[in-house]
């Protein structure tokens, strides 16, 4: 039986945008389930596809942001009776560009070490480095949509209780930390343009009051300042370069240990 994808979309106070995204995804090939994680929305903005919701005072006031929000969704998904081999996590400001899911899932079957896939948006320079397989190994990517293998999620939640550190509230260098955990466990993270989304930034620029977050520039400032505090307290490093170097070294070690993995490192 071919492998399938379940999709969870993170929503905060953007019901109509979220519903449109669900409609665009739920009938696509190899998509088994398409649900919504609600991150403290007002009642009127809760999606009809919501499968799990945090209506705590904190969530209503601040929102969960991707790290806490995805963790809430993953916990729900891992306890669900029926789940697919892969889980796609999406912010609700994603817009579908390409979804060659069958090609991607069939290709991933050849690479059991691959546990995470980052869909590339149009114009991402990694797309220029992809070989004809359109899948390549990476260690440093921007935060955004994320496709994860079920076994990896089960392992991470049983061992540490989360995937993306909820203490890193705004998600500074979240995917870099994910790459560290992936490669440190001799697993692999890839990018692909076989599935692709674009981020519709008009929502964060124009609708932040409706969504209930800070203005975009203030959010970026807090992302860095709070993120650097988190980085220093968790890893004892002062800047992103140091953390990047650590992850790169772990990645290079993975390549040495797995020279025949059959995927192109995109460097």
């Amino acid at each position: 039986m071919p492998t399938e994808i379940d999709v969870l979309i993170l929503n905060r106070n953007l019901k109509s945008v979220t519903e449109k995204l669900v409609e665009a995804l739920e009938t696509l090939p190899r998509v088994s389930l398409c649900g919504v994680i609600d991150s403290g929305s007002r009642d009127a903005e809760i999606s009809s596809h919501t499968v799990v919701r945090d209506s705590s005072d904190f969530a209503i006031l601040h929102g969960l942001r991707p790290n806490k929000g995805y963790d809430l969704g993953i916990k729900w998904w891992l306890q669900a009776e029926k789940k697919s081999e892969w889980l796609l996590l999406l912010p609700n400001d994603s817009e579908l560009v390409n979804f060659e899911s069958a090609e991607l899932l069939d290709e991933l079957e050849k690479f059991p070490l691959v546990v995470g896939v980052v869909p590339l948006s149009q114009g991402n320079p990694y797309t220029e480095l992809l070989d004809p397989s359109r899948i390549g190994l990476v260690w440093n990517t921007h935060e955004g949509p994320l496709l994860l293998r079920r076994s990896f999620l089960e392992e991470r939640f049983s061992r540490q209780g989360y995937l993306l550190d909820p203490m890193n509230y705004r998600g500074y260098l979240s995917f870099l930390e994910l790459a560290l955990q992936v490669y440190a466990n001799n697993r692999a993270l890839v990018v692909t343009d076989l599935i692709s989304f674009r981020e519709n930034q008009t929502h964060v620029f124009n609708s932040y009051q409706l969504i209930g977050t800070e203005a975009h520039s203030e959010n970026l400032r807090l992302l860095v300042s709070e993120g650097e505090t988190w980085l220093a307290s968790k890893y004892g490093v002062e800047d992103r370069w140091t953390f990047e170097m650590i992850v790169r070294l772990v990645f290079e070690e993975f390549i040495k240990v797995n020279p025949d993995i059959g995927l192109l490192p995109l460097v």
Binding site: G123, N140, H142, E244
Partner: peptide
């Protein structure tokens, strides 16, 4: 830049290469 820049690979990816 302390933040990822859209349309660019991070220097830490390219520089060592």
């Amino acid at each position: 830049s302390k933040l990822p820049v859209a349309g660019m690979l991070p220097s830490s990816v390219q520089l060592p290469e």
